[in-house]
Design a protein around this nucleic acid. Structure first.
Lengths: 343, 343
DNA sequence: CAACCCAATGCAAACGTATTCAAGGCTTTG
DNA sequence: CAAAGCCTTGAATACGTTTGCATTGGGTTG
């Protein structure tokens, strides 16, 4: 005291026990008697003692920290990230803290060498990967993580080989919900806005749900599909192309809320009214969705449950349990952008 | 090789040098000759060697990590955090990474004992505090941090004693910009929505800027001010009270975008049109601001510059430099919610 | 009463790095 | 040619914990 920081030795000295006992007492080890444990913890509290995480981490080879990697679209140079992921982020942070884990957050370019950076350096015990995006461009890195038995979970659509590492919402069901809603409102010519290649497996599943719902309603195959990836500008562009094509349509199912927002702007600019002329439904339920006018009907992904599940799965993996892929049920949030109700 | 993880000893062995030299070479120490440095770094790369952060941190008593603490309003039990701060978060993450620092993110209740948790435990070399909110309720904790010479910076209005730790936008100027814009459009009866007590010093400054702009325009003292704190519901409520009061007004200056959003909803519900009947200007320029209809005219805080400045200041502090309070200039973003232009 | 067991504690050895100090070789200088 | 200086390297230690193993003392059992 006086000189350096308080260590477990200081506490041991005050309590008249060995440093080993202090370490055990603070970790609530059953090896130490209740009385001494109490005494030691009291002294530690009085001295505002904090376990040195570096030392503890070095000795135990564990960091009690999770790393969250958010992939940003390399194509958009502005630093806008999809609000949906920010919502995930805050919920993941809370979930991690509930389990007494720290959370390291990092925004990454997918192209960078982010793999094996975290676990090998003992900075994190596990990694959470987040980001819509071009999965194909980093499957090799995922494969490397897999082969190294790295602890990681990924949000999104499951892929072959990733079953035990993935958590996602039931995109197929989400696609059905949206489409069934539109069909129920009498819409018959629904355009799907979103890329449906394997590069965007989540969008692809949503499209498949859309297709199946159409089929079940006896409306045949989807007529209109236009590519759009992430930012709202892609939604705007897709809608412009849709209008230029001259195809007639009475509804738009956008693969994400941002795409939907871009679509609505384009429709308005073209003099079309939402929902009177065109119904629009989105996907994600981002914060801004309820503030549009009309407010956006959308398929909500429960970010709170998703975060909880990602963290649970990852911690289970760290503890050595294996688990299966988890699919979360999405829910349809009806607002004003489809008609049939006003907000 | 074979047994455990690769350590600096393994590299030393392969390179035919001592572990000390490896450590130096990897940190680009000028003590080691260019040739051996090259050789060692090459071998390290080949083995995918990563310095163990726990060991390095323990030895050097430094973590190369910053902690970001986001304070959430304890009153709102839903986990919605102001989007403005999420924008700050992502920019701070980028700024930290640019300086090769990791970022630990934690959402905290202001009431919790978050002080002295991070530095003492060697988890972070410095702390960034973020959150609109009831400053008064944690001034004692800030005082404790100050007295301990903790490394921390805080976003928001400077307070006595915190000058060297604060980074904020020029809220007074922001208040002026908003009000001058409204006055320039011919508005004369402007209601200010936001609490102006010392508990919310940032809102208070904005109000003072508002007041001064009115005075300079020869419009006398502010007539209408209603309390609102954070979430959009508070803006809705404040507007309801405003309408019930029967006071006549032709503009609203909301102390934050969320408050503005709540205000607009309330106005619409009451059958008032924005901007024809009432002009509305907000503060922050959150993501959703541009998607409202009409899009929200607002005072933008440059979160990218703010993040850069926060990180710079904090790192300077860690390195032992002192600095002065920094004030960032806000800028008025004109959109459709005040009239005089359409979007 | 001896033999044993269990609960509670202490001793000491890691964990992998950064850094101080000493030493080696090689060049320069008087 | 000796002394001094510089550049490069190595040996050894410390950072503060966690944990395997040994130790103690009291209680239990045959």
């Amino acid at each position: 005291m006086g000189s350096g920081k308080t260590t477990s030795f200081d506490i041991a000295h005050r309590a008249g026990v060995s440093q080993a006992t202090v370490s055990r007492a603070l970790r609530n080890s059953p090896l130490v008697s209740p009385e001494t444990r109490e005494r030691i913890q009291r002294i530690a509290r009085e001295l505002n003692y904090q376990v040195d995480r570096s030392a503890a981490g070095l000795r135990s080879q564990t960091s009690h920290t999770l790393a969250l990697l958010l992939f940003e679209d390399a194509t958009t140079d502005n630093s806008q990230i999809n609000p949906f992921f920010l919502s995930m982020l805050s919920n993941i942070s809370r979930a991690a803290h509930r389990r007494k884990f720290d959370l390291l957050v990092s925004f990454q370019q997918m192209s960078k060498d982010w793999h094996y950076e975290y676990e090998a350096s003992n900075r994190a015990d596990g990694i959470i990967l987040l980001g819509y995006g071009d999965y194909v461009s980093y499957t090799d890195k995922l494969a490397k993580l897999l082969s190294e038995n790295a602890h990681f979970v990924i949000w999104g659509a499951t892929q072959p080989g990733l079953e035990t590492h993935a958590v996602g919402c039931d995109n197929h069901l989400g696609g059905r919900l949206a489409t069934e809603h539109l069909v129920g409102l009498g819409r018959r010519h629904i355009a799907f806005l979103g890329e449906t290649t394997d590069r965007f497996p989540e969008f692809k599943r949503r499209f498949e749900g859309h297709r199946d719902a159409l089929a079940e309603a006896g409306l045949g195959e989807p007529e209109l599909q236009l590519d759009a990836q992430g930012p709202e500008t892609s939604g705007f562009e897709a809608t412009r192309r849709l209008l230029e094509s001259g195809a007639s349509f009475d509804a738009i199912f956008a693969a994400s809320d941002l795409i939907a927002i871009g679509a609505i702007r384009c429709l308005n600019k073209a003099g079309l009214r939402v929902p009177q002329d065109v119904s629009v439904v989105g996907f994600d339920d981002i914060h801004a969705a309820r503030y549009l006018s009309p407010a956006l009907t959308t398929v909500r992904q429960d970010t709170s449950a998703a975060a909880e599940m990602l963290v649970n799965k990852l911690l289970g993996m760290i503890e050595g349990n294996s688990s299966s892929a988890e699919l979360l049920p999405p829910s349809l949030i009806v607002r004003g952008s489809c008609g049939g109700r006003d907000t």
